[in-house]
Design a binder for these strands. Structure first.
Lengths: 305, 305
DNA sequence: TGAAAATAGTTGCTTTAAGCAACTATATAT
DNA sequence: ATATATAGTTGCTTAAAGCAACTATTTTCA
């Protein structure tokens, strides 16, 4: 297929898909929230510790407009704004209980629309649809922003501890690592702490440490990316680095756990080839357990899957 | 993959793709035309004999707003409005020469953006992208609107001749069929004229007639769908009926020709499996020649392609 | 260290996009 | 022949979003 034909096909698909999305949105318009308010609620729901200026970046809207919309949502008791301790100019956004409830309703509604869209597709066709969307997405995401730098720490810095602190608060982690335990991981040649920097500033981190009870397995923990740096492939870059390291050390599988409400994160893991597995630890907060084979698999075995 | 996970994946993709499209549009915003004006120009360009109320349907906008935008584009000498002979309430829209020129510029710009989007994908990846988009589209288009009825004519009616007249004018056909020649096709057991009706009204037609010089081959001609009925799968339904007929009569291949500026139509043919072939007639207006194998092909042969 | 520059957010004002409703003119149905 | 529907226009209004000027912090760097 020639280049011009490809470009035509893509434009044509874009028109087609825009029309389809438009249909979904038209019906979404049942009163209470404008489309943009809905997107804002979603982003706040999905990204703990989001700020107004993060929203500006994600939604691509004017700061003044966002300010007003946030003020309105706050007055309606759906959103809370807490002055950040680290930087008292910014307000950390979160949903109130009422906001969570509305969001759940919106999500249900939206899911129902997708369900309607899938009406008339059988199981096999749905699988194919999801798989094709996955291919499209991974191809279009491939171009990593080269400003993201990944580094395996050789010593524990205050910056990392601050970032971890942020992670604990964002995700609501109960059992926190002590600086000593972090240092232990840093010093372990079969484990490590990776950090991601964007334009020189630290924006993300993740551990890798082996699971003594499971030979050949290593676990990824504390994977976190600051809200302001989301959508730039930072998590992917961190996982890439960890997978390369784990392969180099001869590990066969990477495990990780998560919470079922962290759907964006779980979606990301799944796109990278992580699949559900049995509970492998006794972390009471974890409800989702995922595993990825990283050993080179013979092609025949791959085909079979 | 569970149903809930699938739905999540689709919603997630929609957000991702919306963001990508948003980026494209932001940059499109360089002055002269609003997004909606651009879409209007595109539709007028792509659909001869479009009317304001067709646009209402396609773009999903208020009639008053469309009226105003059209008035503006007309004042700017980009669009022409001709009172329809058949119904003097409606105005047939077309681009002026200046409008065509602007449209060409817009298309170039848009193509360049897609080209940028593809930056960093190699040839094989691009093929995969286009193929996946095709799968998505065909899956989501599968649900045909059941109101479309297809019928193989047993006699020539005035309605069909009117529709053909419309086709000639829309596409700018030089050599027109006489009523006698149409009747000949209708009466030929190995050929035929198909019409599509939507809620009882005729909205589309197409011929099929054999090519004496090419045994096993039949040609599709005069495939036309009224602008007001586009996007409802009418053309697909007509082609489905023709392909079934052709298979039943033992034909192995369907040919058709087109003009390279009828890109929407050509895109549709390609999605159905038509591939470029050599010029097979001496129609001076045709610049694109397509062919589809309709005989059941052994799977091995399919794989190889 | 302290002034200048940058960043986060707010507020008044304006622009733009788009809808609604009432209207004219023509066409279709009973 | 009259009622009803359709295509399009025009006046008025609303909603969405941007711009610019402003305050309060924080960061930079000479």
């Amino acid at each position: 297929m020639s280049g011009a034909t490809q470009i035509f096909a893509i434009r044509d698909f874009n028109r087609f898909y825009t029309a389809r999305l438009g249909l979904l949105r038209k019906r979404h318009l049942d009163g209470e929230f404008s489309l943009t308010e809905g997107r804002m609620l979603y982003e706040i729901w999905a990204n703990p510790r989001l700020t107004a200026s993060n929203l500006r970046g994600v939604l691509g809207l004017d700061a003044g407009y966002i300010s007003r919309l946030l003020a309105s949502l706050t007055k309606r008791k759906l959103v809370r704004q807490a002055v950040s301790k680290a930087d008292s100019r910014e307000r950390l956004l979160s949903l109130t209980q009422a906001g969570e409830k509305k969001m759940a309703a919106l999500n249900r509604q939206s899911e129902q629309q997708i369900e309607e869209l899938l009406q008339g597709l059988n199981g096999e066709e749905r699988e194919r649809l999801v798989a094709s969307l996955g291919v499209v997405r991974s191809l279009l995401t491939a171009q990593k922003s080269s400003e993201v730098q990944i580094e395996r720490l050789s010593e524990v810095t205050g910056e990392v501890l601050d970032l971890l602190q942020e992670y604990y608060e964002a995700v609501g982690v109960m059992v926190r690592d002590t600086p000593e335990s972090v240092r232990e991981i840093v010093d372990d040649p079969d484990a490590g702490v990776w950090i991601a920097t964007l334009n020189g500033k630290i924006v993300g981190c993740a551990y890798l440490h082996s699971l003594p009870s499971m030979p050949g397995a290593t676990e990824c923990k504390r994977l976190y990316v600051r809200p302001s740096a989301r959508g730039k492939g930072v998590a992917h870059a961190l996982l890439d680095a960890q997978e390369a390291f784990a392969k180099g050390r001869g590990f066969k599988r990477i495990y990780l756990d998560s919470k079922d409400d962290l759907r964006v994160a779980i979606g990301l893991y799944q796109r990278r080839g992580f699949v559900a597995c049995e509970r492998y630890n006794d972390n009471p907060q974890a409800t989702v357990f995922l595993m990825k084979e990283i050993a080179e698999t013979p092609k025949k075995a791959l085909r079979r899957s």
